[in-house]
Nucleic acid binder design. Structure first.
Lengths: 191, 191
DNA sequence: TTAATCATGTAACACGTTACATGATTGC
DNA sequence: GCAATCATGTAACGTGTTACATGATTAA
């Protein structure tokens, strides 16, 4: 259900077209939720049928016609309802689903060299991801202003925006620390 | 594709029925990959059609009849092929998908008290999950023997099994550390 | 001149979840 | 007597991915 609620959350800031929602998703929420363009359009249709949104077609001559989505009263209720029931999302956050860890589990079937290569490659990608996030952190303050309206104090928005980036940095850092431990252990055994 | 490869990995140890695979999945791989019983049966059918498995029906009088799955040569090739191409799984491991973080992102729309409650609840669940894993760590050595054959040295299996548990402990610990930071920050601002 | 931006979707497929169905045996 | 274990699935739905289609304008 969370794609729906992410879209509701953005439309609660201001009315947007599917195209704009797609771009906004990619440039802000995509760190912790990903969605393809085609999926977003499908979900918008479903949400309109549920009565959470209204849409209005805008004809344009220079550019393709567009369709602006606006959250309804019922949509705001749904959003408030979602906020009030966080338990299942917290439970989901406890679940790890990782094909990479499945490889680690079965790594006893391969050579120690293969396992080491896997871990080193993982560590490297964690470093890259962490560095990319640190850059995002720096530009967060100015960036946040482009996606939320003026009515909410900018500081409050930025606080939570930064907290989500901080989560990512912490996440990748723990991946690096774990990989270091694992690599050290295997190298030791290999001697 | 990883459910298929998880099942192949287990069947590479020894032939099992769908029911046994389901139980084995739940008691070992479920920390980093979850699958429903009905999905496992569906995947086994698909894998047999691909020629990765053979199945043999065993009639029983005291208990329901069963169907034992055995990995084929082609299945072993597929497994080896999967081992040799880890890049996409590593890339996937870099992606965070979390409705909980989406809530954090939108938490500026609620009160600081609500946000604090969310973070405290998250922290608590991380603690519980971490403690549950620590217990698993203790019993890992004896447990691992029940799911892998004698041909592979037990120590090697246990090493990687423990590494995956270690990952989990590290993951939850980083969640706790992040939540502590976040809670401290919000409490400070609230004063 | 070629790529990016604007702007919308459809169709098919893959993977995951929920609900339902059956029915004997064994342990508390 | 009731729950758990053994053992198999089907059907429908929900969510996510891939491939395809269209076509004008604008900046490098």
């Amino acid at each position: 259900m969370s794609l729906k609620h992410g879209l509701l959350g953005l439309l609660n800031y201001k009315s947007l077209t599917g195209y704009e929602l797609d771009k906004t998703f990619r440039s802000s929420l995509s760190f912790f939720w990903q969605a393809k363009t085609s999926q977003i359009y499908r979900e918008l249709d479903a949400m309109e049928e549920k009565g959470w949104l209204n849409s209005q077609r805008i004809m344009q001559t220079e550019k393709p016609n567009k369709r602006v989505y606006t959250i309804t009263h019922s949509g705001k209720e749904e959003l408030a309802n979602w906020f009030s029931l966080p338990d299942s999302d917290i439970a989901d956050a406890m679940r790890v689903k990782s094909a990479f860890l499945m490889r680690i589990f079965f790594a006893g079937e391969t050579t120690t060299q293969q396992a080491l290569a896997l871990l080193r490659s993982y560590r490297e990608k964690c470093m890259e991801s962490k560095n990319a996030l640190s850059l995002a952190h720096v530009s967060a303050s100015s960036y946040a202003e482009t996606i939320t309206p003026e009515t909410i104090t900018a500081e409050k928005r930025v606080t939570f925006w930064k907290l989500s980036i901080l989560y990512g940095e912490s996440y990748y850092a723990s991946g690096i620390a774990w990989a270091d431990q694992a690599i050290a252990l295997l190298e030791e055994e290999n001697e």
